[in-house]
Design a protein around this nucleic acid. Sequence first.
DNA 1: CGAATAGTGTCTATAAGACACTATATA
DNA 2: TATATAGTGTCTTATAGACACTATTCG
Lengths: 220, 220
Amino acid sequence: MEYPRPILTVDVVVLALDEGALQLGTLTRPEDPFAGCPALPGGFVRVDEDQNTRAAALRVLHDKIGLVDPFCQQLATFSGPTRDPRGWSASVAYYALVPADRLAEVKAHTRLTWNPAAEAQGLAFDHSQIVQAALDRIHTQTTYSSLPALLLGQSFTLADLRHCYELLLRQPLNDSAFRRKIADLDFLEPVPGAQSRSTARPAQLYRQRSDKLALFDRTI
Amino acid sequence: MEYPRPILTVDVVVLALDEGALQLGTLTRPEDPFAGCPALPGGFVRVDEDQNTRAAALRVLHDKIGLVDPFCQQLATFSGPTRDPRGWSASVAYYALVPADRLAEVKAHTRLTWNPAAEAQGLAFDHSQIVQAALDRIHTQTTYSSLPALLLGQSFTLADLRHCYELLLRQPLNDSAFRRKIADLDFLEPVPGAQSRSTARPAQLYRQRSDKLALFDRTI
DNA sequence: CGAATAGTGTCTATAAGACACTATATA
DNA sequence: TATATAGTGTCTTATAGACACTATTCG
């Protein structure tokens, strides 16, 4: 028994750190539905070339944003008869993070518009709702993982990392307790000899031991 | 621009507590593909009647299992060209919990087969993998929510609840610390006057203040 | 040297684990 | 009253917060 098939798309919440805030990358839709409206980068799943919806999301990120092999995780699937005027549709939503040291090239080579993620509204389809769900997820993951480190560049100081956690958690963290926890968690290693520039004592630079997300037993 | 549309289905990991273990409900597939093979209850999304994939999952639970309005949350979407021999498909997976006091009626009225969830293997499609993802999610949610209480009946003792947490966490919990935490979390209320039967001092019965999942700030 | 930020040491507060102790039902 | 499980009190231990103190660089 077969049934009429719904539309299946992927959409990606692309986030980066810039100007001290979490920024959302959107594309202006060139055609209907929602022509001229900002929307999440996304597209139809192509059954002839995509191995799964994640591959479809990575294809979209590569083709539309020039972003290769980013951190990209499935968020949830949003569906219904009215979210897309073309008909009953389901969109598998992903969220991707652009590291600080790749943001310049992404900005230079694509039509992506960047705006503070917290102010995202008026997006096409139900994309505002998808962004909100992504922000909630990222807030939660920040409490028990190294996710904020994925927004920073190759190397960073502990002050950089703490500021990133504080930004995503929207609350200040105790500096000495933060250092203690980061040391205990052991997901960073010092970049030997490297130091940061400033008018005062330079800070030690660190990098992640792995390019993967580190999960903690307890909250940060 | 339109593309060939993939198959879109929903599948539900149905779990209940029985005989001191977490049990998975499966249905034997009546027809190809995978005829005669145990599979998760599921089905095609029907664009003419389902308001979204969650409604499709609830329809499946109602029609195939006689389970009305259970706790049912989206797990993830599994997709690809080979997971279903009929073609490129995506399945939005959900997990649902059957409370202990509704298990008997579910068992009586449906063809569901129950087996320990931890031993699930040889299921149709990629359903074994979906079950594993659901068990991982439930394990995680048990550490910071009242999820185990949703597997128990209307009222239960603190010993019942602790056993349920211990079962899902696969580790013993300190009894007095557990009581302290449950009291602090304040998601239970005593059922007045009610007591449990046993050969020794009866225990106070409790029920959840809300039928919703309570989320904790810290780990249990 | 003074300013500024980096990093450490340590005291206090809070929550978890251990476990002895009391409470209350039935046989 | 003996026993079995329910439930409490409290000491110890681990971790987080507060904050003063030392360290290091530059102008």
